[in-house]
Design a protein around this nucleic acid. Structure first.
Lengths: 232, 232
DNA sequence: GGCAAACGTGACGAAATTGACACAGTCAAA
DNA sequence: TTTGACTGTGTCAATTTCGTCACGTTTGCC
């Protein structure tokens, strides 16, 4: 649902957070190098950043200030983690616009709650989630697919699969990619599952099913424009 | 210009806060007796409540729970002040839906900043107290639901749940989302609670219960317009 | 054309999801 | 303290959805 950027050099902490986020159905991205925080935030546009101030050899507050200074990231909420419990630092953080502030050691649960609280607020300003592709209109927010204006019923898995294909239409999606995106598999599994779902999807799309094109030996692709309808 | 309710028995603290608020151009209202918190909040509809949990002879958490339970005050952000620094209490507060939490002794400055932060956020949300959706009319202020013009009695939880669904109607609400929005859980707990309440809600809505649509594998959705009641 | 690999298809059992319900715990009012 | 309303949890069954398998078909290549 939401995408979170975690900037934290201690892998056990970031993994803990990541685990929780996964369970909550969120996307996340971990980086350990504070210098990458800004570029990563710019590129991935997360909904929330969890920033550890105590990165080795770096002034975390500096990073934070840059995040706030850059227009592409100013509006992204930031939760700051730090070992410094001094009040002055807290103030500095909040004053600069951090959305929340936790001092180590903190209860993971409390962090989750604060993350949730912030996402809850942010979520209300949801992005427009409609993808238009030719005869198709995919409404992520409502989880609806419209083909030529009329709605089609898809299961959750089918919807995820189609969304993934349509988000980057015209690009070839590897089998491994799709398995990872839709099923969350990290490993490559030899399975016909993907094929089955592709098939069911095509079935439901009816005549428009041929927009899902097989790239033999590689994967699948969504083509908005079909090259040659006329094979005659 | 916002209105803040301060519930605090130590007059030096409340005066300090009040002074700051005045300088910032806000209205405020101080009460020392926790029992008056709810009635005062109902009457004055403040934009924010600062609640000291350590009121003499009263369980502050109790007061907080009542504030949350009453629909006329559920949506008012609360900052909790307390001397109890125990993590469990913090969690209890946040879990119940407090917007922020400060433990004494705190820097007044920090409190101001948090107050400002919350007011800034709240201000963006224009409060509409009536939601009209087809046959439904939901009156948040009085916690009443009208179906085809006649009132239905809903419990607090049911009301919150329905409100959440109706506020963003037609959008799919994840189970996790709903648990967060309505219950404040940050949890991954497998529970039938949500289902149970959905069921009770549908029951009370009677024939109109089918406006609450199950999205299998994902969550629920409020549909103002039902697709095809009878395709015959 | 023949071959092997990759892909499509249909069917079936397993797993997940959810609605219904009973029951126990909690809280506020009497 | 008792009562009654409300809420949360566990179980069960019905249903949907999923993943796997076996087998047929297509594709690329010689």
């Amino acid at each position: 649902m939401s995408k979170i950027l975690i900037v934290e050099d201690e892998s056990d902490i970031s993994e803990l957070i990541a685990l929780h986020l996964t369970r909550e159905g969120h996307d996340y991205l971990c980086i350990a190098n504070g210098l990458q925080a800004l570029p990563a935030a710019v590129e991935h546009q997360p909904d929330l950043i969890v920033l550890d101030l105590m990165l080795p050899g770096l002034d975390g507050m500096q990073i934070f200030r840059r995040l706030r200074a850059d227009t592409r990231t100013t509006n992204i909420p930031v939760i700051i983690l730090t070992a410094k419990a001094q009040v002055t630092d807290k103030i500095a953080g909040l004053e600069l616009g951090a959305d929340d502030y936790l001092t180590k050691p903190f209860s993971p649960r409390e962090l989750y709650l604060r993350i949730s609280a912030i996402l809850r607020r942010v979520k209300k300003v949801t992005h427009v989630s409609e993808i238009h592709r030719g005869r198709f209109m995919l409404d992520r927010k409502n989880m609806k697919l419209f083909l030529d204006g009329s709605p089609l019923d898809l299961t959750t898995t089918e919807f995820k699969l189609l969304t993934t294909l349509m988000e980057n239409d015209a690009t070839v999606h590897t089998r491994a990619d799709l398995l990872r995106e839709v099923w969350g598999y990290s490993t490559e599994v030899a399975t016909r599952t993907l094929d089955t779902h592709i098939k069911r999807l095509r079935e439901k799309l009816g005549s428009a099913g041929n927009h899902i094109v097989t790239i033999r030996g590689t994967g699948f692709q969504f083509q908005t424009e079909l090259p040659e309808a006329i094979a005659a």
